[in-house]
Amino acid sequence: MVKPIIRTKQLIKRYPMEGETIVALKGIDLEIQSGEFLAVMGPSGSGKSTLMHILGLLDSLTEGTYELEGLNVSHISREMRADLRNQKIGFVFQTFNLLARSTALDNVKLPMLYLRPRINGSHKKAMEALKSVGLADRASHLPRQLSGGQQQRVAIARALVNNPALILADEPTGNLDTKTGREIMDLLSSLHERGITVIIVTHDPEIGRLTRRRILVRDGIIIQDEED
C-alpha cells in the first residue's frame, strides 16, 4: 500500500503586490503518492510556480493545510522549513543555480553542509552522487567549465545527495536543447524508478507526456488531473 507523500486541502496563497492582493492559489486539493512521477503543468501566471514553492517549503501558505509525509507543515517556522528542505526535498532549477565559484564536487556537498546531525564521509557521498549522474570525472570542474547538460546533472546530484523523499524540478529542461533535455528527463525518470517521488513543473506538453501523471493548473486551481 503506497501512502501519500503530499496531501493538500484547500490550499490558498495570497500575497500583496503594489497595494493589491493577488490570489495565486485559490484552493488546491492534491494528493501525491510516494514514488509518483508527475508533471505540474500550466501557462505562465497560472500559479504552478507558487504551488511548487509551497510544496517545496520555500514559501508559506495563507490558508488550508499541507501534509508532507503525514506531517502537518502548514504553519511551521522558517527554521523548520529549512531543515525539511534540507532532508526531504531536492531542488532542480531551470537555471541550474550552482555556486559559480565552487567546484562540481563542492556544489554537491553543499546540502550536507547544512545537515543536522552532521554526517561523516560527505566527500565519498558526494562522489557517489556525481557518479550516479555520470560526472565522476568532472568533480573538480567549475560550473562554467561544464556544458548546460552537465551543470544540470551536477544540480541533480546535489538534489540527491541527502537522500530526499521528493525531487522538485522547475522547468529542468528549459535552458537546454532538445537532445540534452531528453537526457535529463531520462535521468529524472530513472530516479523515479529508484523509488523517489519526482515532480516536474513545466509549461511544455512534450515534457509532460514523459511522466505518468499530469496536473493542469490554471488561474490558481487544478482544472485537470490525468494519469496514464
Binding site: 527554521e79 534540507n86 531542488f91 550552482l98 547544512y114
Partner: peptide, 16 residues
C-alpha cells in the same frame, strides 16, 4: 543574493 538563495534552498537556516 543568488548564492544566499541557493544555500537557503538546500537547507541553510537563517542562523547559518
Amino acid at each position: 543574493t543568488r548564492e544566499i538563495g541557493i544555500r537557503m534552498a538546500v537547507g541553510a537556516r537563517e542562523r547559518d
